[in-house]
């Protein structure tokens, strides 16, 4: 592949260009490798979940136990805990879909052949974040009215002179930092982890194949060992980022629904 090609002419560390992998076409609407992975993830998740759902039993089988554990985690530990037992139900599909989609695509990072985290491409986190952004604003405005929604951004019981400052701060938080950090956190974590994996893999390969002496070639084992350790670490990161994303989604929704801060 291109990576090996790059390694051929002296070691050049991978750059951000690694993440731009168009398969068909070019430019703004090129069909890229992460797009294929995204489509693949939906093609895997949807039938599996429907299959599990169809065969649901009160006493779970092993496969059902695993999916149900995931479902109950998102439903109770995230949805119910954050939004509250009264109102969390309509948001279960949103949270569960997000969690599955992010988790599976994050795990693609370490699955052989796929080996690419879809969400390291900012377009995908932005897509999910747009949904979250729309949901928590719409839900909040429906609950409090448009005026009421903005009015309640400022918590009660603060000195009058500080109210405009807090209002601006909240405005920036609700409309800029919340969505931006939500998308960037996911993207940056997957991006950085993958970059490290690529560095260790390519570095090890380069040292092994092109090493000037035996010592350097043996030292490549260290690079591969780090690659393996990082791989396990990335599994953890994949889960954690999926969790943080749905957690914050639920938190923002809860924040918009809350009567008062």
């Amino acid at each position: 592949m291109r990576l090996r090609l790059a390694a051929g002419e002296g070691f050049s560390p991978p750059t951000t260009e690694f993440f731009w992998q168009p398969l068909v076409g070019d430019g703004a609407f090129a069909f890229t490798r992460p797009m294929l992975l995204m489509v693949l993830s939906v093609a895997v998740i949807a039938p599996v979940m429907v299959f599990v759902a169809k065969r649901m039993q009160v006493v779970p089988s092993k496969g059902q136990f695993l999916t149900e554990g995931t479902y109950n985690f998102v439903r109770n530990s995230v949805g119910k805990d954050m939004i509250g037992a009264k109102e969390f139900r309509p948001f279960i599909p949103l949270l569960f879909t997000q969690f599955l989609l992010i988790l599976v695509n994050n795990l693609f990072e370490i699955i052989p052949l796929l080996q690419f985290p879809t969400f390291s491409r900012i377009g995908f986190p932005v897509a999910l974040t747009l949904v979250v952004f729309a949901v928590y604003h719409v839900v909040g405005m429906r609950r409090h009215g448009v005026g009421g929604y903005f009015k309640r951004m400022v918590p009660p019981g603060v000195p009058g002179w500080i109210v405009p400052l807090i209002f601006f701060l909240e405005l920036i938080t609700y409309f800029v930092t919340r969505p931006v950090t939500l998308a960037l956190r996911l993207m940056a974590n997957m991006f950085a982890g993958t970059l490290l994996l690529v560095v260790f893999a390519l570095g090890g390969e380069y040292m092994l194949l092109e090493g000037s002496n035996l010592f350097v070639r043996v030292a490549s084992l260290g690079s591969f060992a780090l690659f393996v350790i990082m791989t396990f670490f990335e599994i953890l990161v994949g889960f954690l980022q999926a969790y943080v994303f749905v957690l914050l989604t639920a938190f923002y929704i809860a924040d918009s629904l809350a009567e008062e801060h």
């Binding site: 979940m49 599909p93 879909t97 599955l100 900012i122 897509a127 949904v131 960037l184």
Partner: peptide, 24 residues
């Protein structure tokens, strides 16, 4: 790394929409 490619954004939205429909 921080400029969303429109194609990926759209595919992301559609993929999410389809999966959401199935899940919901």
């Amino acid at each position: 790394p921080i400029l969303p490619q429109p194609g990926e954004l759209i595919v992301g939205l559609i993929a999410f929409g389809i999966l959401y429909w199935v899940i919901a």
